[in-house]
Design a protein around this nucleic acid. Structure first.
Lengths: 191, 191
DNA sequence: AAACTTATGGAACACTTGTTCAAGTAGTGG
DNA sequence: CCACTACTTGAACAAGTGTTCCATAAGTTT
């Protein structure tokens, strides 16, 4: 019941649509936003050249869809970082973000900056910040804001370092930022 | 003496070369790195289409030259921020950077991220950080690193805010970051 | 003035881009 | 079986790209 009968064509279409978005994110990770073209995405997703145009009216729409989709994962990653409790764990997450997940982090910050020029993307780019503030609800909102800013800064600076900073280097800085407070330990996120 | 006699042609060439770099920076401020093409730069600098190619072997070289050139100003701006002493002054500098100088700040962070993908740009992008650490020589290096990271984060987050944060909002956060320390007041930079 | 270097700038080339179009296939409902 | 809708896809187009080339102008040296 509840019109379970979905159009098989639309179902496959949706799947392809998502595949295209995922391919776009991979292209951004590899070559940056500059490397995103209908053709590069089509090649990456292994679909014909015109497929992205069919599903997304314009290239901008494709970029927007990709940002919106990746915002969810960014959100989870970031919240995992700020909510993981101990300074050591936070430092480890940060170190991973600028090493193993370097491409991904770069992609996320490129999309971040894209939002600086496309107002309609701002809410998506800001989502993890808003969520973090809301979930953590720290006793010291000012200190928490400072901590969140520093997380962004540490990641950004880690991306342009000669060698990516490791957990051991980041840990004291994180410690400094959260010293004397344990009010934003993990708050489980309801499903 | 000391071969004061410079070739008048080369002199004008150097001037034009600089004009092209400055035009490139203006293009980036207006349209982002994506908007930089030989032709758009030539139009902005009011020189023929082939002029940028004559002075810069490739488009990449032009971007690199622009980053290197702007790094100096970025450096000065940033140092003014971190060395201006009081939390209020720092907050005012930050508020200006994301409001009046929004385009400029966006441009600088785009070049920042570009360095993430072009290793040869990293030293230039990192210059203000290195200089800040060296000049300030704070008694508490860890706290200072945290402060520097937070400056980057506050600017970045200010760029994607719905309305740019003002001095009053930023001041308490800055205060929190530099609380209990006055060891990085302005150190005049020798000429 | 002749020989040289350097700067200038229009024309053109090969290539990639976003997007359109029309012809096609395949799944759906009557 | 027949309309109907949704998806698929290759060909094609106009526009813009980085870059090369070459004839010329301008400044410098001998």
């Amino acid at each position: 019941m509840e019109h379970q009968k979905v159009d098989g064509r639309k179902a496959r279409g949706e799947k392809k649509r998502r595949a295209i978005v995922e391919a776009t994110l991979r292209v951004i990770e590899r070559d940056g936003v500059a490397g995103v073209t209908h053709r590069s995405v089509a090649r990456e997703a292994d679909v014909p050249t015109t497929a992205p145009t069919y599903y997304f009216a314009t290239l901008d729409d494709l970029l927007i869809a990709t940002l919106l989709w990746s915002a969810e994962e960014l959100c989870n990653d970031m919240l995992k970082v700020v909510a993981s409790g101990s300074a050591r764990e936070i430092a480890r997450c940060l170190a991973e973000a600028v090493d193993e997940n370097r491409g991904r982090t770069l992609a996320e910050y490129e999309l971040y900056l894209l939002a600086g020029r496309r107002p309609e993307l701002k809410p998506a780019a800001r989502r993890w910040l808003d969520l973090a503030v809301e979930l953590a609800d720290p006793a010291d909102p000012v200190g928490f804001r400072a901590f969140l800013a520093a997380v962004d800064g540490l990641l950004l600076q880690g991306l342009i370092a000669d060698v990516a900073p490791n957990e051991a280097e980041l840990e004291p800085i994180v410690s400094f930022l959260i010293r004397g407070r344990d009010d934003f330990t993990a708050v489980p996120r309801e499903e």
